[in-house]
Design a protein around this nucleic acid. Sequence first.
DNA 1: TGCTCACACAATGTATACATTGCCGATGCC
DNA 2: GGCATCGGCAATGTATACATTGTGTGAGCA
Lengths: 244, 244
Amino acid sequence: MKDDTAKTHTMRAVIQLRDKIMRGELHGGMRLFEVSVADQLEISRTPVREAMSRLTEEGLLERVRSGGFVVRTFSLADVTDAIELRGVLEGTAARLAAERGVPAHDMERLKGIVAKLDDCFGELPEDVDFEGYAELNARFHHELARLSGSEMVCREVERITRLPFASPSAFLPDEANIAAFRRSLQMAQEQHHTIAAAIEAREGFRAESTAREHARAARRNLDYVMSQDRSLIERVPALGLLAG
Amino acid sequence: MKDDTAKTHTMRAVIQLRDKIMRGELHGGMRLFEVSVADQLEISRTPVREAMSRLTEEGLLERVRSGGFVVRTFSLADVTDAIELRGVLEGTAARLAAERGVPAHDMERLKGIVAKLDDCFGELPEDVDFEGYAELNARFHHELARLSGSEMVCREVERITRLPFASPSAFLPDEANIAAFRRSLQMAQEQHHTIAAAIEAREGFRAESTAREHARAARRNLDYVMSQDRSLIERVPALGLLAG
DNA sequence: TGCTCACACAATGTATACATTGCCGATGCC
DNA sequence: GGCATCGGCAATGTATACATTGTGTGAGCA
């Protein structure tokens, strides 16, 4: 199944290296030598090189001036700033959507996603369909980027989103069964409504500032994990590549 | 001298391909085949592949699903949106600098650049040192990104700036001896002052919105070129890669 | 006539041998 | 003792042969 994208040695190398970086097995700043990686993955240098180049595009590796690659280092500040940047970019997407207007059927699709997100909340506060929420949330954010009507903006949103800890779903999957997080989910869903309404009403400023603040929910969750309950770090996969 | 960065076949290929793309010799959407490019540049496929991979990181090429590369297509809308995005990102840099505060000596350096920019304007309106302005302008924008204090923000600003038509100096070099453009230079310099002052006064909103508007000066110049005097297109090198 | 299958060619994917470079350590000279 | 220079090794750079894949075209069949 997953071999759909892993037909070639290059893609397998991309996947394996990405995994190792994410789980912190290859820590930030570590130099990756073509030969040793090739030995370890039991393929030749050529696809390894190709894979490292792709991971550089993805932002997980960096080229060294004199040649070769190192694993990119991410500090806590980088995570915070990446989330802020996602907010800024999604805010821009929302503003442009509002200012330029969106076709009716696209608007309906967005509102449809928001409505389905409502259905993820049951009668009781602790009665939340996390899995469904996560998937619909991802779709909402994807759709929001598209609604900007700008391929350029869409591309940059998806680019920053590809950093695992900056993704809209980074802090969702599993640890949300804490009261504080449940409340933040409710609030986030309120913001989904607001963003959609602002776009429909052509209120650019409101759309932008709400989308920006919406991203900062992730930052609040990050702060909570780091300062209140560091045991959660391991349960947020994306935080495996944090320096330190 | 320029061979500093062109020691290897790979780097020479990067430079030559980039040039050809910029001057429109390789137009958007055109597929680049490893073998034919290798033949043309008289090197083997390996460095060609490496070069194309780097140009993909740079945003000038795109990978094709089934393998291979095409020259990225840039529409007029893409140029407009890239400029808007630069404004958004530089605005974020300015806001963060204001909100988080900057060290005194960094502030002085920024103000020093602004002062030197003042010196580029002579007594007479048409008495402007374009070359000096362009260089100092580039330094101002570079410094602004740094002042954000965020490596992440700095990196993304420099990334979007690498798109030739989105660079702060894209519309400066040469065609500025038109009255309308001279006025826009004066206004831009006013904005430089305002941005610096806002950062120093910790006025985040003002810093952000001014930096954003500042970028839109480039958009105005673009609109002028496209609607009033298309003969200038050829004199703005970055516009060579616009889709026909 | 239209569809499908198969074959061939063209293009990328991969391995590997060889070239080049740049760094580090050892040895010698000052 | 410190510095400079000269190996030598390790790592990347390059070329090329061969493998694999994907695509287009033609023929054959329904």
